[in-house]
């Protein structure tokens, strides 16, 4: 039963991944990507990582919803009313991808992987939490700093005109320099 489910979710994951680059609309591509993520989350649950599976479902559902908004903001043809193909060097990319799959697949099948040692902890989520706050604290610290840096730099990049654009590098101007005067006087 588990094997059937694993194969089925695997087929869904890969088929949805292919669909991302085949469908005509960005919106459909986003949801195909979401389906692929959900199938991988189901595989993670099958592999005993219930917490990581659920986390993937939650994160990816929200992430794809956000992605949908950006899709509509930037993309021509978000609804797929006409055929869409925006690719360059398709043949080269295809051959590199197939070559990668052959190499990785051969590695997966040919390498004598070590056999299973040990059993997972009885309460895996709890053990993972303690591990993140204990022996894997460094990973947690790096993740935290990376996320903070991401937040700051993403806001910085996405800001159109910040206060240094309006008030000068030393914030020395009394009135902001705006393309159009007015506003609420701040």
């Amino acid at each position: 039963m588990e094997l059937v489910l694993a194969v089925a979710f695997g087929i869904v994951a890969v088929a949805a991944a292919v669909a991302v680059f085949v469908v005509d609309s960005m919106a459909r591509a986003t949801y195909a990507l979401l389906v692929s993520f959900l199938a991988v989350a189901a595989e993670l649950v099958l592999l005993g990582s219930a917490y990581l599976g659920v986390l993937t479902v939650l994160m990816m559902t929200v992430e794809m919803a956000v992605m949908g908004v950006f899709m509509i903001m930037y993309m021509m043809n978000p609804a797929g009313l006409m055929p869409m193909s925006m690719v360059h060097n398709k043949r080269g990319a295809l051959s590199i991808a197939i070559g990668t799959f052959v190499v990785l697949g051969a590695g997966a099948l040919l390498v004598p992987w070590p056999s299973r040692t040990g059993e997972p902890p009885a309460e895996l989520t709890r053990a993972l939490g303690f591990s993140l706050m204990g022996e894997h604290m460094l990973a947690m610290i790096v993740i935290g700093v990376a996320l903070l840096a991401t937040m700051i730099s993403a806001v910085l990049l996405a800001t159109d005109r910040g206060r240094y654009d309006r008030y000068g590098d030393e914030l020395e101007r009394d009135t902001p320099r705006d393309p159009v005067a007015g506003g609420v006087g701040r």
Partner: peptide, 28 residues
């Protein structure tokens, strides 16, 4: 088995690689 999952993972990685190399749109 581990092989099955690694094969699926390899397929996902390769499809993603194809997309990253071939698509023109930044979002894609």
């Amino acid at each position: 088995s581990l092989d099955l999952f690694l094969l699926i993972a390899a397929a996902l990685f390769s499809v993603g690689l194809y997309g990253a190399l071939s698509q023109q749109s930044v979002v894609m």
